[in-house]
Design a protein around this nucleic acid. Structure first.
Length: 877
DNA sequence: CCAGTCACG
DNA sequence: ACGTACGTGACTGGA
């Protein structure tokens, strides 16, 4: 049997796949659809053909010799979409990881290389398959060389096959003649001009009759119809040039080592890493199950017995170690200590080994370390005391700073991205089991998981630190993020006192009104239905009651508040629905939700997450204490249930327009800076300047508009957004913006620079060096790109404000501690800090808090802080 | 598990 | 022409 080679036209198939597969990105935001489609096509062909050799050819970006000869036709090709361009290098890396031979050569197109190699293989007696989306390649078809053109259809990929005979059958001409047809008719996508006035039909007829362009010219006089004859006559040079352009060069001086193209096992560990990274889950099934196998497990030791564990701790002398553990509901299920990347020990409670004993031992172990590495320092601090002076490395926080866009920072991702190593993930090891169940049902898997995590931490930490250095983020990491861990840990531990009985009373009061509304709504609707279902509500309002239907969503009618508010004046039922919505929200999320979160100590211990937001803010969960109602009076009353413990008061301080002040500083706009230097009311001054009105004469409406513009500026202004917010026309909004930028020209220049800088660098950056990648800026999609521009304008501002309040938190905490005050920082709400202060420290702490917040950053404008105390959060804010 | 809605800065 | 404000988290209903 003769040997078989498959040759793939890289760019052509990638291009096909790009347009044939719907947009797809992995969680890092990398586009992956073309690579995905390419691999699918390739696997299908390989499964079918089982070739002995495989090679993929790519074009080089340099102009080819063929095209260089004709300057005029160079460079008219459309540039590749960014979403596709970014996938080309990835594609090549994936192929390389699979051990597939790639050929490319400056000055030649992939076609030329494919033609040349096909010729060589044919001479050696091989069967050749060329895979391309491009019909030009049909000219290469012979009895042994098959051209295969994949078509992406809804039913999957179908492939059209052409040997020389099939070309004749389909196009009436031989592969050689096909060149001439193509040259006559031209091909705009390939920059082949062709002969004007001659299309596919005429070209085919001519070549069927005369076999070649040259012969057609030799018989020019006989040619009919007349038009074709004249066209040919007048554009002879065009025809010749087109033929040169259309002819694939099959004698490229390339040294092609057939053995290097020999098809080996594609399913390599390196390729597996790529599949994981690209998140091609169904491709992973092609890899053998043991692909995640590595030889690390020989370094893992599991100790269960008291004497082994005692020996381990007694003999422990390392100065650097990674500590990792898993807990659930406060119970620690397992702990691993990595002394080096060749020595990981797993320890667990049970029998004589009590949790208390283990904690004590780990405490001692940590005390003895110079460097403590962990994936979750805040979590560790719940069990172990670690002085803030200790050199600690939190690998999750490091990874977050390097890329804040990820949804999660798991050890298996870290191992893959930093170490290029596949380790089994939590899902691989435990499946969907909860930790508690896993501890009972498959303890070995849990042991492995914790060991892998500790291993990954210690093995990756140097590279993480190096990357932080490289990105100039070491200071941000050392002086803001790491110290903040201790602040957040304390805040979580401390919690906020909440009065359960009061909360329940509040809830009960809501319930009464809710059922009244319910009855009335059903009556007005003429039937009962689920008011909480936007779908059912939409049907009632817009179909049954025939209300003018405003906006629509993907799934049906929009019943969002802004739509309902427009209908409310005309339909009493709508006002009732709005009130119903408001009350049920308060009941379910706040009254009931918060009550469930009150711990036995009478306090709510929220979790503050430091690695969630793209901008550098912190977030709060279970419960979210950063969105407690305040804007509406009824909701605001909830704040009365948040109270300090006996003998204490609340002190609440918030920054006044911190983001706008950050903007004034960063932009250096003299007018805005000056406005802040003299003024109490920045929105009024803005209104006065923007609307050319004396300060005293500014109306409430003008002030409100100016305020909206100020907000808009911080969000990355768009006339549409502003017009929506103010219920004005786009034109009017444009006018406001233009006049704002005239007043503050430095702001305009600054915002433009933020966008160009982010475009150039690929990320937006805060004053303190925090970065946020903005891949959207490179999108060819207008909407995506505009979004990227707004991100580029907003992130440095929001992020810098976040940096500043973090600095304030660290300083406030350190001062409270250093001065041995009893008062504690307990909450942060983006521009606001809440302290539970001992009554006798009230005045001092008020000053301390305001001072530390004001001086957290040295800006061109002062940072104003409003500070207030009270017997509950309602009063203090 | 996602979409819609709404609470906050 | 495109179709929008920036950043979060919790709850509900309905595939």
């Amino acid at each position: 049997m003769s040997k078989k080679i498959v040759l793939i036209d890289g760019h052509s198939i990638l291009n096909r796949a790009f347009f044939g597969v719907p947009p797809l990105t992995n969680s890092e935001g990398l586009h992956t659809n073309a690579v995905y489609g390419f691999l699918n096509i390739m696997f299908k062909i390989l499964d079918e053909e089982k070739p002995d050799y495989l090679t993929v050819a790519f074009d080089r970006s340099e102009p080819t010799f063929r095209h260089q000869m004709f300057d005029a036709y160079k460079g008219t090709r459309k540039p590749m979409a960014q979403e596709l361009r970014e996938q080309v290098p990835v594609m090549k890396e994936v192929l390389q990881a699979m051990g597939i031979k790639i050929v490319e050569m400056p000055g030649y197109e992939a076609d030329d290389l494919l033609g040349t190699i096909a010729g060589m293989a044919e001479v050696q007696g091989m069967d050749v398959s060329i895979i391309s989306g491009d019909r030009d390649l049909l000219q290469l078809a012979t009895e042994k060389v098959k051209i295969r053109i994949p078509k992406t259809k809804r039913t999957g990929t179908e492939i059209e096959d052409y040997y020389a005979a099939d070309v004749v059958e389909r196009y009436q001409v031989t592969p050689k003649e096909f060149i001439d047809v193509k040259a006559l008719m031209g091909d705009s996508s390939d920059n082949i001009p062709g002969v004007p006035g001659i299309g596919e039909k005429t070209a085919t007829n001519l070549i069927v009759a005369y076999k070649s362009i040259e012969n057609a010219y030799a018989h020019l006089e006989e040619i009919t119809p007349k038009r074709a004859k004249t066209n040919l006559e007048e554009h002879y040079d065009m025809a010749q040039m087109s033929k040169t352009l259309a002819t694939i060069e099959v004698h490229v001086p390339i040294e092609f080592d057939m053995e290097a193209a020999k098809l080996t096992d594609l399913y390599t560990p390196e390729a597996y890493v790529y599949m994981k990274r690209l998140e091609f889950k169904n491709m992973l099934t092609r890899f053998s199950d043991d692909m995640s196998q590595n030889d690390l497990e020989k370094y893992f030791h599991v100790y269960h017995e008291l004497d082994e564990i005692q020996n381990f701790f007694d003999g422990f002398s390392a100065k650097e170690a990674a500590v990792s553990f898993f807990e659930e509901a406060g119970i620690v299920y397992g702990l691993a200590v990595a002394k080096s990347n060749q020595n990981v020990v797993y320890l667990t409670c049970g029998g004589f080994v009590t949790e208390g004993y283990l904690e004590e031992q780990v405490q001692k172990l940590c005390d003895g370390l110079d460097t403590l590495i962990t994936p979750d320092l805040k979590g560790l601090l719940k069990h172990v005391r670690v002085p803030e002076t200790k050199n600690c490395i939190d690998t999750t926080i490091a990874a977050y700073l390097l890329n804040p866009l990820k949804n999660e920072y798991t050890y298996d991702d870290l191992a893959r991205d930093i170490l290029g190593l596949m380790v089994p993930s939590k899902l691989d090891l435990l499946g969907k089991l909860k930790i508690k169940k896993a501890a009972e049902e498959k303890p070995e898997a849990l042991e492995l998981m914790v060991c892998y995590e500790a291993y990954t931490c210690i093995a990756a930490k140097n590279q993480l630190l190096e990357q932080l250095e490289d990105h100039d983020m070491k200071k941000l990491y050392d002086e803001i993020e790491m110290p903040l861990v201790y602040v957040l840990a304390d805040m979580e531990k401390e919690g906020v006192r909440a009065e359960k009985a009061e909360l329940e009373a509040y809830g009960a009061q809501l319930t009464g009104r809710i059922s009244e509304l319910e009855t009335s709504i059903y009556e007005k609707a003429g039937e009962t239905f689920n008011i909480n279902s936007p779908k059912q509500l939409g049907v009632i309002l817009f179909e049954k009651l025939q209300m003018p239907n405003g906006k629509k969503t993907k799934t049906g009618y929009s019943t969002a508040a802004d739509v309902l508010e427009r209908l409310a004046p005309d339909y009493p039922i709508v006002s009732e629905i709005l009130e119903y919505r408001q009350l049920t929200k308060l009941k379910s999320t706040y009254a009931d939700g918060l009550a469930l979160c009150i711990a036995p100590d009478g306090r709510i211990h929220s979790t503050f997450n430091q690695t969630i937001t793209a901008t550098g803010r912190i977030s709060s969960t279970e419960p979210n204490l950063q969105n407690i109602p305040i804007r509406m009076e009824l909701g605001r009353l909830i704040r009365k249930v948040f109270v300090p413990k006996e003998g204490y008061v609340f002190i609440d301080a918030d920054y006044s327009q911190i983001e706008l002040r950050v903007l004034a500083h960063m932009s250096g706009d003299q007018n805005l800076i000056a406005a802040y230097q003299h003024a109490e009311d920045i929105h009024r001054i803005t209104a006065s300047q923007v609307f050319h009105t004396p300060l005293e004469a500014v109306t409430d409406l003008q002030r409100r508009n100016a305020k909206a513009v100020n907000f808009g500026i911080v969000y990355g202004i768009s006339s549409f957004g502003l017009s929506q917010d103010l219920s004005i026309t786009r034109k009017e909004a444009e006018g406001y913006i233009a006049s704002y930028f005239e007043t503050y020209p430095g702001i305009k220049i600054f915002l433009d620079r933020l966008v160009t800088d982010a475009k150039e660098k690929g990320y937006a950056e805060t004053m303190f060096g925090r970065r946020r990648p903005v891949p959207e800026l490179a999108s060819s999609n207008f909407m995506q790109r505009s979004f990227g521009e707004r991100i580029a304008m907003n992130s440095p501002i929001q992020g810098t404000a976040a940096d500043i309040i973090k600095i304030a938190m660290i300083r406030v905490k350190q001062r409270l501690e250093r001065e041995q005050l009893k008062s504690k920082l307990i909450l942060q709400v983006h521009d606001e800090l809440l302290i539970e202060a001992a009554a006798d420290e009230e005045e001092y702490v008020k000053t301390l808090l305001a001072e530390e917040m004001r001086h957290a950053a040295d800006l061109a404008v002062t940072l104003e802080v409003d500070v207030k105390s009270g017997r509950n959060w309602f009063e203090a804010h």
